[in-house]
Nucleic acid binder design. Structure first.
Lengths: 194, 194
DNA sequence: CCCAAACGATAACATATGTTATCAAGTTCA
DNA sequence: TGAACTTGATAACATATGTTATCGTTTGGG
């Protein structure tokens, strides 16, 4: 899904910058769909300002799987690479400023990159990073209770809690909105001192 | 974690075969540890016969995260690529026959591979496949109940249920052994006709 | 500025799931 | 072969979590 090399491998920034002119800057309102579930991803998306979520529809209820913020790039990776329908919808949460780089340019960029001497090494590392991210998400469900996952969010990625509506977070944590509300009130009580 | 290009990209088999002589064939008993949590992965593992699991230790209780069988290759990917301690222990479940390819040869193999014209494309595809696998595991926890996850295993990967001790499966599903037992007996009752 | 929609808290009840303990049936290995 | 270990089922109880409904607050757009 996520697929950002900018900032992770500074060495590659010059390549990336070269493609800036081909990116379309767009100012878009909140709740705007950037990619629809079932469609094939045609663009790499870079977020200059705002925030975005990826979700899928499950019997009418939306399940959010990931959040993205300023200076992050993303695409529906499998869809983008393998030309298959996207499992996810990508939608802005806040009014946002994004850049879209059409796939043909990305492919061209990849081909240029492959001339870099340690391209293989870099791409393996990026791949491992991404993989590790999703493995950690998955492991967290096996290892932690919903309450622990919420606390992990609080300590490690509190910006998500601050900016994202709570019912998106609930589905991301795999619980109901009611239960998340209960967890919050329980934790709030624990903090009170009389 | 898993990282097999053999069989996925037949084109690469000739490269792979070239490195067969450097692989050590080993016959090992059940419950043998191939890589210890906290150690850095030094080998790519290929399973000729038997089966293997990856797990981690959580406050004294083991949580299994993945199973591997015949003709699958694996390694603790992040550890192997980035030289960091492995999050997981890799252990045989059954008596197994495996091949170990030491990391230096894998690196050499990767370098040769990078000469292939569409290397970038292939490695992106492999990367997307792996990523999709873990995303699906993770999405399953958000979308499905434990009972549904068990049924998914039954219909899509029943070999796991047939060969792997049930308590490993329970932790893989993120539930207690008691609950898995209950799920099974519930499903068994549903199948009875009087 | 106002209204409809979005958001979040809470209660009440039903169900799902964990924990601990016990028992029975394999399995392994000395 | 017999004891120790492993595996799995089940009961009883406690806790976690989902569902539905209600209410108050905030928010966004005409």
């Amino acid at each position: 899904m996520l697929f950002h090399f900018r900032n992770k491998f500074p060495k590659l920034n010059t390549y990336w910058d070269k493609y800036m002119p081909f990116q379309k800057r767009q100012e878009i309102p909140a709740k705007t769909i950037l990619l629809d579930e079932g469609k094939v991803s045609q663009n790499y998306i870079f977020i200059e300002k705002g925030c975005v979520r990826a979700f899928f529809n499950n019997n009418g209820s939306e399940k959010t799987v990931q959040f993205f913020f300023e200076d992050e790039g993303l695409t529906s990776f499998d869809s983008f690479v393998n030309n298959v329908p996207s499992q996810f919808t990508i939608e802005t949460i806040e009014p946002s400023v994004i850049y879209l780089l059409p796939k043909p340019y990305v492919i061209q960029l990849m081909n240029e990159l492959s001339q870099e001497p340690d391209f293989a090494q870099m791409i393996l590392q990026m791949s491992a990073q991404r993989q590790t991210h999703y493995i950690n998400e998955f492991v967290s469900f096996i290892r932690d209770t919903p309450e622990q996952r919420y606390q992990n969010l609080l300590t490690e990625r509190s910006h998500i809690i601050q900016r994202v509506p709570q019912h998106y977070i609930a589905s991301y944590l795999g619980i109901s909105t009611v239960h998340l509300s209960r967890i919050k009130s329980k934790l709030a009580k624990g903090k009170l001192h009389f």
